[in-house]
Design a protein around this nucleic acid. Sequence first.
RNA 1: CGGGGUGUGGCGCAGUCGGUAGCGCGCGGCGUUUGGGACGCUGAGGUCGGAGGUUCGAGUCCUCUCACCCCGACCA
Length: 493
Amino acid sequence: MSQTPPTSFVEGLIDPTENFDGWYVDVIQKAELADDAPVRGMKVVRPYGYRMWELMVASLDARFKATGVENAYFPLLIPKSMLEREAEHIEGFSPEVAWVTHGGNKLLEEPLAIRPTSEAIICPIYAKWVQSWRDLPILLNQWASVVRWEDRPRAFLRTSEFLWQEGHTCHATAEEARARALQMLEVYREFLETELAIPTIPGVKSPSEKFAGAEDTYTVEAMMGGKNWALQAGTSHDLSDHFGRVFDIRFLDREGTRRYAFSTSFGLSHRTIGAMVMVHGDASGLKLPPRVAPIQAIIVPILGRKGDRGEVLAAAERIRETLSPAIRVRIDDRDDRSPGYKFSDWELKGVPVRIELGPRDLAAGQVVLVARDTRDKLVVPFDGVRQAVEELLEAIQDRLLATARARLADLTVNVGTYDEMVERIAANAGFNRVGWCGDAACEARVKNETKATIRCIPFEERARQRAEPPAASGLCIVCGQPAQHEVIIARAY
RNA sequence: CGGGGUGUGGCGCAGUCGGUAGCGCGCGGCGUUUGGGACGCUGAGGUCGGAGGUUCGAGUCCUCUCACCCCGACCA
């Protein structure tokens, strides 16, 4: 008992400390989240992974509706001419658009794009719907998939087809549109933190990193485990009246003046599943936040001598009935697997709480609860199981968030010199908070020399700038000129 | 699109000099087991990525081709 416990009870899983990207691929396959598909870059989302997405959809959708956003559905295919109307937009997306050229066996007069995102088809329809200020705002969202032809796919994080939601709103004023974009980013931030236990740094993208055609792009940047790289976990765009002008969305305001409408869009994809894997996982596999875990508690009956089997299973069933449906619980009654196998199997799958129940427990009228994150054991009498499991699930959710928060805070460091930053990036040391003069040339140099990018200009820093000069040295990390912004620089998935 | 690599049962791999396609895991059946990945017996499963060539004979040699993976440029 006094021996150091092994870091992993799961045999054959790649060690994340030695090969984090290999571990990611391995754990997704072995935990049955996704599988390869016949078309390169596309993946099958298996039931266990899809259930996580369903749980996310439910809670995020409720948050949208609370802000007045309704769901709708717009077509998959966009006429080429429509997609090409906004020059910057098509320039940004054209390298990754998939095209439909044939209908049946007839060549189409005009090729149809499979949506890489839907601004280009939703805006023209909004143009039909909007005549008066009374028609605004329009607050719609759709749950859909989009296609972006990827050269280097990675399960969940970057696949050629991905599941997401895209919100599209239309407003009478620039201020209202901007406020909506910021509001939805805050929805993402709160959702990621509360449900997925993923803390993020919210901020605005630099001009070179912003969405094609946007006035401003807002982002929530999360820090992955292992290599401490960044991942854009959600994004919202203040499109100003750019798309309103291009797609001719016009309305008469209260004074009778004809104006272009202002719009926003915002999206969060199933890459957040990958984020959860990378943020919380360990050498034994997944470690799922209870709120989105498909199975929150797994009962493993230890079937001893023949005579006890029926009694143990009956007790397990009573425990299950006590917990269900408030808690997503299952019994692992597989008869051909040892308890050790089952323990490892459910740890691999990241189930937050394991409930062990064997002949000894049966005799004592108790169960053993084991937390996935700490492996701490807790002995609980039958009549206290419901409350103990509920409390443990909450504690695990809190611990995962606290751990991730501490990591993000500890590994986001003020850096004063370019050389130091280069070293930190090469060493995968985390996020670098540095001054930036605002010149795209300095930004480009960082990217060329280190592959790292400006992830965002954090809002907290923005607010502080009004009162005091930028932190760190107050100078641009690259050129040494006075800094205009404080930015986060890191490599990203 | 550049650079590198791999294709052999479901998965991971071996296959020497060209000579009857093998191993581990997994899978089916039966039995014994069960508190951190149990064991015995038994069984099923293969056009060796594809096409062409050399040869009495090709998983192995030659030519072409396809697919996938990894590393770079682009991305929710």
